[in-house]
Design a protein around this nucleic acid. Sequence first.
DNA 1: CAAATTAAATAACATCTGTTGTGCTTTTTT
DNA 2: AAAAAAGCACAACAGATGTTATTTAATTTG
Lengths: 200, 200
Amino acid sequence: MGRPAEKQSERRQDVAQAALRVIAREGLERASMRAIAAELGATLGVLTHYFPNKDALLRLILETVGAEIREAFDSVPLRRPADLHALIGEILPVDGPRRNLWKIWLSFAVAAADSPALAREHAREYGELTVRMAAALTRLAPQLRANLQVQAEAETLICLMDGVGLHGALMPERMPPSRQRAILKAHIDALARKETASHA
Amino acid sequence: MGRPAEKQSERRQDVAQAALRVIAREGLERASMRAIAAELGATLGVLTHYFPNKDALLRLILETVGAEIREAFDSVPLRRPADLHALIGEILPVDGPRRNLWKIWLSFAVAAADSPALAREHAREYGELTVRMAAALTRLAPQLRANLQVQAEAETLICLMDGVGLHGALMPERMPPSRQRAILKAHIDALARKETASHA
DNA sequence: CAAATTAAATAACATCTGTTGTGCTTTTTT
DNA sequence: AAAAAAGCACAACAGATGTTATTTAATTTG
């Protein structure tokens, strides 16, 4: 009863999936209504029937991508600090599908800068990711550095992932999967290193 | 004599600056030829006279932004590790102009994913940044961690900056300047901490 | 089975896009 | 001063875009 509870009549998702394929293949700016309809093997009528306008369609796509990222996050059980390696391996753009997901995600991030509606949705998704990351670090806290600031480290980790993901998705030659993993492994290992009590 | 040495007849730069203002204000996708011409207080004739097509104009803009970022990089003398704080303060999206620069930069990063011409220019700029960062760390090496891998740490630092910059530029409420600086300060301080000899 | 709702195709719209061509004015060159 | 070139405005183009009817077919409801 909390949320609007719009009915998601399957076909809406078909449209969203077709749109995702177009965006992944040709970019967000070339994902026109007609291109999406063609990808679906249908006509504009379908799109206009299920969505009041293009913005509504784009919002559903953003939500869909956000859900996929959240699922990837939740699919990894976090018991030991080393499990964070599996988590980042599940999320980073290490293969075609994941590169596409990142590409789309970043497209929306940029587009959201000029669209309040998208920006709201986008900020919400990031909020959920941060909460998840902070929860993960809290759960692992006993096995991490003693004086670790969970909230701050969660944000840092997300920023580092976004930076590596940005390079990995948009410049794969310069930032191949091996280097993506190496960078985040080094950072995570530093979190798990209990000996040093920092400078203070 | 190394580079093509195209003459940059001032007016070309005027066009580029007008385009930059439009992109900063309304986003890359809404930066049409006509919008740029209007911003310049002229007509389409000016643009078509100085540029063979829109792509050439966009490439000049990307190059201009890259030059600004490089200048910011070079404006900070790096003698002590703490100077890195000043460097990141000079580059990160901590105020309006710099947020705009990042927004434009990220727009091009995403657009480059579907435009080979832009991608080449973009990769070149990133190459130069990485070289600069690696050179900076090499210069500071004697005052940093003993077993520090310069190239790897330079890439990590750039990724972290890009991640923080992405959040700072596109979601300023969630990533204000203070937090941007805090995140990078923590990372840089860890590089400068000489005591710990790591795990090996 | 009839009526009503849903699904989808088709066509038309006004607007915006990058590009091209033409002509006028100013500046530079010879 | 004559000739040439550069700078730029203006108009027109073909095509794409989101949106809005209008119609026809399929499905559900009574």
